[in-house]
Simulated assay, not measured.
Amino acid sequence: MQIRDAEDRDLEGITTIYNDAIEQTTAIWNETIIDVENRRAWLADRRTAGYPVLVAVSDDDKVLGYASFGDWRAWDGYRYTVEHSVYVRSDQRGAGIGKALMEALIGRARDIGKHVMVAGIEAGNTGSIRLHEKLGFERAGLLRQVGTKFGRWLDLAFLQLTLDDRTDPDRPVDK
Rank of each mutant, 00 (worst) to 15 (best):
A100Y: 03
V55Y: 03
L156I: 14
T25D: 02
E7C: 13
D10F: 11
G50T: 07
V57Y: 00
W153L: 13
G151R: 00
V57I: 13
A95S: 15
L163F: 03
E23D: 15
G13N: 01
H132I: 07
D111E: 15
E37N: 13
R152Y: 13
L142D: 04
E138M: 12
D5M: 06
Q145E: 15
Q145H: 12
R144D: 07
G120H: 05
Q160G: 00
D164F: 06
I28T: 07
I17W: 05
H132P: 02
E122Y: 00
P172L: 10
D61Q: 15
L64K: 06
L135C: 11
D91Q: 04
G94S: 09
I14E: 03
L43Y: 06
A44F: 12
A95Y: 01
D20M: 03
I17E: 03
D20E: 13
Y66M: 01
V53C: 08
A104D: 08
I33S: 12
N38P: 05
A104W: 00
T32V: 15
D76Y: 13
E23K: 10
W42A: 12
R166H: 06
T126V: 14
I34Q: 11
K99R: 04
G96A: 05
E133Y: 07
A95R: 11
A41N: 07
M117C: 10
I121C: 01
F150S: 08
A6C: 14
Y80N: 13
N30I: 10
D20V: 12
I97Y: 02
R152P: 09
G127E: 05
E12C: 11
R47E: 09
E122C: 01
M102Y: 03
K175C: 15
V53L: 08
I33N: 10
D20A: 14
F137W: 06
T16F: 09
F137T: 03
S85W: 06
A123E: 08
G113A: 15
D174A: 15
E12P: 09
E37K: 00
G136F: 01
G98D: 02
R166I: 09
G98E: 05
D165S: 13
H115S: 10
E12V: 14
V82H: 00
T126F: 12
W153K: 09
G120T: 08
V53F: 02
A74P: 08
Y66V: 05
M117L: 12
V36I: 13
D155E: 09
I3M: 05
A104F: 05
A74Y: 07
Y80V: 12
L163S: 01
V57G: 04
L64D: 05
T32D: 13
E133A: 13
W29Q: 06
D10T: 04
L54I: 10
F158Y: 11
G98W: 00
